[in-house]
C-alpha cells in the first residue's frame, strides 16, 4: 500500500511516519511537499506531527491553506484514507475535515508521556484490527491537545460511533487522572462521518518497535493496511 506523508516546513514527525510505515511495516511511503498540488498514486495520506508553519498563530491554522491540503480534501472527498497525527489532527480540524478543535492542555503545559488508549469502536478503517480489550500504550507529545466541541457535535460523535480512541487508565477506565490534557469525554481521536478521515493526538508512529517501549501503534497502521487491501480485493473482484 502506498502511503503519502505530508511535509510542511516544520513537520517533525514526517520522518518517523515514513520510518514506521516503510522500514518497520514494509510498505512504500514517501514525502509529499506542502507546495505540491497532487498526491500522485497514494493509497492513504498521513498528516504527520510537528509544528507545520511554526504554529505561532494557532496550530494548523496556516497549514489548511497550503496547496497540498487542497489535494488532501479532494482525496478525502473521493473516499481516500487520511490519518492526522498530533499536529496533523489539528490541521484536519482547522481544514474542516474533522469537527471540533484542539485547545491548550488543561494545565497549560506541554505533555510528553506514554498514555493508554481505549478503542471505542472497531468499526473504522483505523481500528478494525485492534484486538478487543487491548489498551494501546502510545506516547503523546503536545501542548494543545485538549479536544473541544460543542454539545451538539459531541452528541453526534457519540451517536454515530465516531469517537475512535479515548484516554484510559492501565485497566481501561476513562478516568480524569488518565486524561492528560482535559479533552472532553477523554477523546484522543475521532473520525469523520464517512469514516475515511481520522485524527488522533497520540503518536502511533512512535510505538511500532519494542525497542521504543511499545509496538501497540502498529495496530492502527495494520488496520489501515487491511482496509486498503480489502478495497483492492473488492475492486479486483
Amino acid at each position: 500500500m502506498n502511503f503519502a506523508v505530508l511535509q510542511f516546513p516544520a513537520s517533525n514527525c514526517d520522518q518517523d511516519a515514513i520510518h514506521a510505515l516503510r522500514d518497520v511495516l514494509g510498505h512504500p511511503a514517501r514525502y509529499v511537499w506542502h507546495k505540491e498540488t497532487s498526491l500522485g498514486d497514494a493509497d492513504a495520506v498521513i498528516v504527520p506531527g510537528g509544528f507545520s508553519y511554526g504554529d505561532y498563530l494557532r496550530c494548523g491554522a496556516i497549514a489548511r491553506f497550503s496547496p497540498v491540503m487542497q489535494a488532501v480534501k479532494q482525496f478525502a472527498d473521493n473516499g481516500g484514507l487520511v490519518l492526522g497525527i498530533c499536529n496533523g489532527f489539528q490541521v484536519l480540524t482547522e481544514a474542516g475535515l474533522l469537527p471540533g478543535a484542539l485547545v491548550r492542555n488543561r494545565d497549560l503545559q506541554f505533555h510528553c508521556e506514554h498514555i493508554f488508549l481505549k478503542t471505542a469502536t472497531p468499526d473504522s478503517p483505523f481500528t478494525n484490527k485492534i484486538p478487543e480489550g487491548k489498551w494501546l500504550k502510545i506516547p503523546i507529545a503536545h501542548g494543545e491537545g485538549c479536544y473541544f466541541a460543542d454539545e451538539e457535535t459531541l452528541a453526534e460523535l457519540k451517536a454515530n460511533n465516531r469517537i475512535l480512541w479515548q484516554y484510559c487508565s492501565a485497566t481501561g477506565e476513562l478516568t480524569e487522572g488518565a486524561n492528560p490534557n482535559g479533552s472532553l469525554l477523554n477523546i484522543a481521536g475521532i473520525c469523520n462521518e464517512r469514516r475515511n478521515v481520522a485524527g488522533l493526538m497520540p503518536h502511533p508512529e512512535r510505538a511500532c518497535e519494542r525497542l521504543l517501549a511499545s509496538d501497540d501503534g502498529r495496530w492502527i497502521f495494520e488496520s489501515m493496511i487491511a482496509t486498503l487491501q480489502n478495497r483492492t480485493v473488492a475492486k479486483a473482484a
Binding site: 520522518q15 510528553c112 508521556e113
Partner: peptide, 16 residues
C-alpha cells in the same frame, strides 16, 4: 521537567 520536553520525537529514544 522532562514531561514538558518532547523526548521521543525522531523514533530513537530507547531509554527516556
Amino acid at each position: 521537567v522532562y514531561r514538558q520536553y518532547d523526548h521521543m520525537v525522531r523514533d530513537g529514544s530507547a531509554i527516556c
